[in-house]
């Protein structure tokens, strides 16, 4: 399963993007059932790019909800173009996903 899901819908010159990422976004303040703190594990950056140019960058801390969601919009893309998203978390894990703009 890809970790990034995107819905990118173009209307006129504007493309509205919604993304849902599967990630625990552990804050570092929550204990597991045995009472041990679950170490912080969260996405730090999520970069969306169109034609290899970043169009929107999210910097996230541990206060972003589990399975994080973000919505934004940008101009200059056309239906059928590819939108790319890449996240990197505080443990150095990373994933990239793409979506066709509808």
């Amino acid at each position: 399963m890809p970790s990034i899901r995107m819905k990118a819908i173009s209307s006129g010159d504007t493309t509205e993007v919604q993304a849902l990422v599967q990630h625990p976004m552990d804050s570092g303040f929550v204990k597991d059932p045995s009472g041990a703190l679950i170490p912080p594990h969260h996405i730090e950056t999520l970069v969306f790019s169109h034609n290899d140019k970043p169009v929107f960058t999210a910097y996230w801390g541990p206060a972003v909800s589990k399975d994080p969601y973000v919505k934004f919009a940008f101009k200059g893309a056309a239906k059928g173009d590819t939108l790319q998203a890449t996240w990197i978390d505080n443990m150095g894990k990373t994933d990239t996903g793409t979506a066709k703009i509808a």
Partner: peptide, 9 residues
């Protein structure tokens, strides 16, 4: 190119 809006949880 970004519009000045963002939504998140």
């Amino acid at each position: 190119a970004s519009m000045a809006m963002v939504g998140c949880r």
